[in-house]
Nucleic acid binder design. Structure first.
Length: 457
DNA sequence: AAGAGTTGCAACCGCAAGCAG
DNA sequence: GCTGCTTGCGGTTGCAACTCT
């Protein structure tokens, strides 16, 4: 039985399909470009669907808009990204995640598509080399800024009337994070790993340096047995259970990707109480990965699967969330990763500007909650599995980063030396160290270690 | 030289928001 | 409030160019 609405929809699709059959697809020709440029000169941007009618160009409006925006509009920069642009992209991605259009707004002359392609390429490279997605210093700065942001956020919560939060930096950013919120799927940030953590320790507790961000409760649909979800440690196996005040919960491993820097304010807040709870938790001790120590000491790096990067893998830590919780949650918050210091004032200015230029969807007060939260979580399983194979990632480091991390003599290398640096870093990883001989085990273990994790959810 | 594999980019697709009627 | 159209965004794919064996 097909409803009227469905029938209408079907008819519309049929008409649309028929109409689209005469439209050209594929690469644009110079002649087509000329027509489109001429059209825009006459009529201006917008109303792209009328291009075909008025100019005879056999392209759909979408295609015209894309071609104009990505290739034909004036003031577009061509060529590869400069080291400075790369730095900005990394910073913005750390803050915004895959918000390509918003990133593009901070890079004049660059398109969202360019940035997206750059990032995905970079991710692939870094994955292959077993390098972290973000430079180490970013992770540290981010952690510091998050601490500051969290403190500020708490103050705002304590004194909502005394604080003009609507104009505060954090609130600006907070308001910019509505778009991707899904109460069933909270993306947490693994950046809070202790970077100095000794991976050879048996005790996993330090790994979860911020319990509020790392532990989550979950219901178990199959067994009715709820438990705690833990981020998957790159250092060792997870406990099978966690004891909180003499009550033992089963633990589930949840994979982590490099930081998306998204977390959910409401989750964070609700988990503050959870934090105090978990502070008294005892994590069941587990053995480190067999052979890890010997492998490291022998200078060998575990083999890494060379799986292709899948750009649809979701970033962050995936946690199960009781569907009854946070149903009115609309406060996913991006935490800026940089400290309020002089060195980053330019970035902060950009962030403020960016925050004031929120896209329309992100100006919304609330987000529609997921209609099938648990279904979505179930569908996450494949994604989670793929995550195990897809991280860490790898890419040559930009000049600004290399200059501070690569050994003397490499610091002022031109941008074209990226491959050389990458090779050196890969070689260093094979030795179990970074190029400057600083042990970098944080992500360098490669996904083989992640694959040794216990089964996920 | 040739085939296989990889890379980088351009373009497409589906979805969702904004907006006008 | 509903509907249809337009626009924008992010994910994904296709393919030419390049590199490797």
């Amino acid at each position: 039985m097909i409803s009227n609405g469905e029938a209408a929809m079907e008819a519309a699709l049929t008409v649309q399909k028929a109409a689209s059959q005469g439209l050209k697809k594929g690469p644009w020709t110079a002649a087509e470009d000329a027509i489109l440029i001429e059209y825009v000169k006459k009529h201006g941007e917008g109303n792209w669907n009328s291009v075909q009618k008025n100019s005879g160009l056999m392209r759909c409006g979408k295609s015209c808009r894309l071609r104009w925006a990505n290739h034909l509009r004036p003031n577009l920069k061509k060529g590869s990204f400069t080291p400075e642009e790369e730095r900005i992209i990394i910073e913005l991605h750390a803050k915004l995640g895959n918000k390509w259009a918003r990133m593009a707004s901070q890079l004049p002359g660059r398109t969202d598509n360019e940035i997206k392609n750059f990032w995905n390429t970079r991710m692939k490279r870094r994955q292959r080399a077993g390098l972290p997605v973000y430079p180490q210093e970013y992770q540290e700065e981010t952690t510091a800024f998050r601490m500051q942001h969290h403190h500020q956020h708490q103050e705002e919560q304590k004194h909502p009337n005394n604080n003009p939060s609507s104009s505060s930096f954090s609130s600006l950013l907070s308001s910019s994070r509505k778009a991707s919120y899904n109460p069933s799927l909270t993306l947490l940030d693994p950046i809070n790993f202790s970077p100095a953590l000794d991976p050879l320790h048996n005790n996993l507790t330090p790994f979860y340096s911020n319990p509020a961000l790392q532990f989550k409760s979950f219901p178990d649909n199959n067994t009715n047995n709820s438990g705690l979800a833990l981020p998957m440690s790159p250092y060792g196996r997870l406990p099978s259970s966690i004891t909180v005040f003499n009550q033992t919960f089963p633990a589930r491993a949840i994979p982590m990707t490099p930081p998306s820097l998204h977390y959910n304010t409401a989750d964070f807040e609700t988990n503050m109480s959870f934090t105090s709870l978990i502070m008294g938790a005892q994590v069941e001790p587990v053995d480190p990965i067999p052979g890890l120590k010997s492998e490291l000491s022998s200078g060998q790096t575990p083999p890494r699967p060379n799986t292709p990067f899948s750009s649809n893998t979701r970033g962050g830590i995936c946690v199960r969330e009781e569907s009854s919780k946070n149903t009115d949650n609309d406060s996913e918050t991006a935490v800026p990763e940089m400290m309020h210091d002089n060195s980053n004032s330019g970035l902060l200015d950009a962030l403020l500007l960016e925050s004031q230029n929120l896209s329309r969807k992100e100006k919304l007060i609330g987000m529609k909650p997921s209609e099938e939260p648990m279904d979505e979580m179930n569908s996450m399983d494949d994604d989670l599995l793929s995550l195990l194979d897809n991280f860490p990632t790898s890419t040559p480091l930009p000049e600004w980063y290399r200059s501070t991390n690569i050994a003397n003599g490499l610091s002022s290398s031109p941008a074209g030396e990226g491959r050389r640096i990458e090779v050196e870093q890969e070689a260093s990883l094979a030795r179990g160290t970074t190029a400057d001989e600083t042990p970098n085990v944080e992500w360098a273990f490669g996904s083989s270690y992640w694959n040794n994790m216990p089964g996920i959810c």
